[in-house]
Simulated scan of single mutants.
Amino acid sequence: MAGPLEQALAVMVLTFHKYSAKQGDKFKLSKAELKELLIKELPSFESKQMDDAEFQKIMNDLDINKDNEVDFQEFASFLGCVAMGFNEFFKEHRQKQLCKK
Rank of each mutant, 00 (worst) to 15 (best):
Q49H: 13
F78L: 09
N60S: 11
E41R: 02
Q73I: 09
Q49R: 14
A76P: 01
Y19C: 01
H93C: 10
K57G: 02
K48D: 06
L9I: 14
M84P: 03
K48V: 09
Q95I: 02
D51M: 06
I64H: 13
D71M: 10
D52W: 04
A2S: 08
D61H: 05
S77Y: 07
L38I: 05
F86V: 07
L98N: 00
L29T: 02
Q97G: 03
K96T: 02
F16P: 01
C81M: 15
M1Y: 09
G85C: 11
L29Q: 03
T15H: 13
F27D: 14
K40Y: 03
Y19M: 02
E36K: 08
E41M: 05
C99H: 09
P43A: 08
A76G: 03
E6V: 05
C99A: 14
F72A: 06
N65A: 10
E41Q: 10
V70S: 01
E33R: 02
H17S: 04
G80N: 15
H17T: 07
F45Y: 15
F27I: 04
F75L: 03
V70M: 02
L29M: 05
Y19N: 01
D71W: 07
D63A: 11
K91H: 09
D61K: 10
Q73S: 15
Q49T: 07
Q23T: 11
D63T: 09
A21L: 04
G85D: 00
F78S: 07
K28E: 06
Q97N: 09
A53W: 00
V13R: 10
V13S: 05
H93A: 13
R94C: 04
D63K: 09
L42P: 00
G24R: 12
T15R: 12
E54W: 03
F90S: 05
F16Y: 06
F27M: 11
C99I: 01
Q97L: 14
F89E: 03
